[in-house]
Design a protein around this nucleic acid. Structure first.
Lengths: 200, 200
DNA sequence: ACTAGTACAGACCAACTAGTCTGTCTATAC
DNA sequence: GTATAGACAGACTAGTTGGTCTGTACTAGT
């Protein structure tokens, strides 16, 4: 049996399976054997593409999570006429994506942050850079809103954006703790109130 | 050598060591051997007091973390003249407790929540009950503030309290991700702004 | 004082898990 | 076409980890 080889795709499959396993069990809880079982690949393939479990974790952050967050927030914020409406729209999307049949697993980025940031500098730097990028997209949108006069001049875009991102993660985290989507809705309603105070 | 025995204290030492290990490495990352090394005890002692690692985790939540949160928030909120000022005071205490020489490890309760809530129903229920208690203390204080006329009547205490707790955890979580206390200060300043909007 | 249950010590085990190594098949360069 | 490097398979290992089990010393009730 002649096997067709496609190393790039093999690597992607490993990354995708690892992302799922990490999302479900955390990085430390993720087992390489389970990633291999998901993909049907063997140890030989894995360690050909990744030097270690740690390197796999870094690659998931670099190649899956960062790209996901970039795709999700960058252009949505960049081409937003109203930054607050754009954030609200993203929150609506997050709600729509919740699968009521599955446990609430929260935000993949924040999950890794809370687990790994104090334990591993490589994780921490990558995570921080994604958060800073995310906050930066919101801050830039707020600053453009100020230029357009729809956001109050007193608002500090970076500070407000930090809080918006922090509050989103907080609301998601509480919903995860309670395993109740209604918690997110309650929490989010107040984030909405806060954001309205940023308008001029 | 005649060893003095004190089973209650032995159990407490195990719980305290386990709490520290969980706080540093997470529940899954916590190793029983390391708990024993911290205490100088052996397997025999451990499995006499706890049926399993899972039961230890439950006990840490029930006997350490819940008690800690109760002691920290209950009476402070109960005897608060001004609920917002009381929360601010607690935030000041949290800042004061940060040790600049150690990595920012965040909130022990939220750490466990983000790691274990979707994985283990026993953890999830215990964590949720502590969060609900915490939120309840804040909500009750807000309601009393409304009765006194210092909190606006339009405020829904439970919803506002949920957001306050969520935002606190979000701010702490971001500071943990960035390993930068300044992130918490920025984030918190906006939580302060939000809370001011609750006044009448 | 005796006994029975309690509170441990510490050796041991079975399962798991990250990582290694050798071999083989495939693709690519020439 | 052939050599060389890349892309895997899969058996194997060494270390770890939660948990068990037996034995023993302590303690409380009678």
């Amino acid at each position: 049996m002649s096997t067709v080889r496609n190393p790039d795709q093999t690597r992607s499959r490993l990354l995708e399976a690892a992302y799922e396993e990490i999302y479900q069990n955390g990085f430390q809880g993720m087992r390489i054997d389970e990633v291999l079982a998901r993909t049907g690949l063997k140890k030989g393939a894995f360690y050909h593409h990744f030097a270690s479990k740690q390197e796999l974790g870094y690659a998931v952050l670099d190649d899956v999570i960062e790209k996901f967050m970039t795709g999700r927030w960058l252009e949505a914020m960049q081409q937003a006429d109203d930054p607050i409406a754009a954030v609200e729209s993203k929150l609506d999307m997050m709600i729509a994506e919740v699968d009521p049949n599955e446990p609430i697993r929260g935000c993949p980025l924040n999950n890794l942050a809370q687990e790994m940031a104090p334990l591993d500098a490589g994780f921490q730097q990558r995570i921080d850079s994604v958060f800073q990028f995310w906050i930066g997209t919101v801050a830039d949108a707020l600053a453009r809103g100020q230029a357009k006069g729809i956001i109050a001049a007193r608002v500090k875009p970076q500070v407000a954006a930090t809080f918006i991102v922090g509050a989103i993660e907080g609301c998601v985290g509480l919903a995860k703790a309670s395993q109740n989507p209604a918690t997110f809705l309650d929490c989010r309603s107040q984030l909405t109130d806060y954001m309205q105070t940023l308008r001029s």
